[in-house]
C-alpha cells in the first residue's frame, strides 16, 4: 500500500517540526507549510492525502485556506482536519460546516491525534469504496 502523505500547515515552527517527527516515525510521508500561501502551493504540487490545518495564522488564516482548498478542483477532494487552540463549539461547528473532515483541539494527546488520522483515512477509503 502506498504511503499516505500528510501536509501539515502551522505557523509555529516547534509544532510543525514536532508533528513532522511524529508522523514520519509513524510511517506517513510528510510535507510542511508555515503559511497559507505556501500551503496552497504545496497542496497543489504534492497532492497530499490529508491536510492538518492550523487556524490562527498571520496573513491568511486557516478558514481562508480551507475555503480556497475546497474551491480549487485539484484540491477539493483532499480531506482537511482543523488543528486549533480555539475550542469553542462555534468554531468546531464552523469547521465542519465549511467542509473540514474533523476538528482537533490543541493541546492534543499524541494518541488522540494519531487515532483521528487513522480514522480519517479509513473513512475516506470507505467512502471511496462506496462510490465505486
Amino acid at each position: 500500500m502506498k504511503k499516505k502523505k500528510i501536509l501539515i500547515v502551522d505557523d509555529e515552527d516547534d509544532i510543525l517540526h514536532f508533528l513532522e517527527l511524529v508522523l514520519r516515525e509513524k510511517g506517513y510521508e510528510v510535507a510542511t507549510a508555515s503559511g497559507g500561501h505556501e500551503a496552497l502551493t504545496k497542496a497543489q504540487l504534492e497532492r497530499p492525502d490529508l491536510v492538518l490545518l492550523d487556524i490562527m495564522m498571520p496573513q491568511m488564516d486557516g478558514w481562508e485556506v480551507l475555503k480556497l482548498l475546497r474551491v480549487d478542483d485539484g484540491t477539493r477532494q483532499i480531506p482537511v482536519a482543523m488543528l486549533s487552540a480555539r475550542t469553542e463549539a462555534k468554531d468546531r461547528v464552523q469547521g465542519l460546516q465549511e467542509g473540514a473532515i474533523d476538528y482537533i483541539c490543541k493541546p492534543f494527546s499524541l494518541q488522540e491525534l494519531l487515532g483521528k488520522i487513522e480514522t480519517i483515512f479509513s473513512q475516506v477509503e470507505d467512502r471511496g469504496r462506496a462510490a465505486r
Partner: peptide, 22 residues
C-alpha cells in the same frame, strides 16, 4: 487562548514522545 495553548501543545507533544521512548 492561542498563545497559551500553542506552547502547551509543543511541550505536551514532546514530553509524551520522549516518554514513549521515541
Amino acid at each position: 487562548s492561542h498563545e497559551l495553548r500553542t506552547p502547551l501543545t509543543a511541550i505536551k507533544g514532546y514530553t509524551d514522545y520522549i516518554l514513549e521512548r521515541r
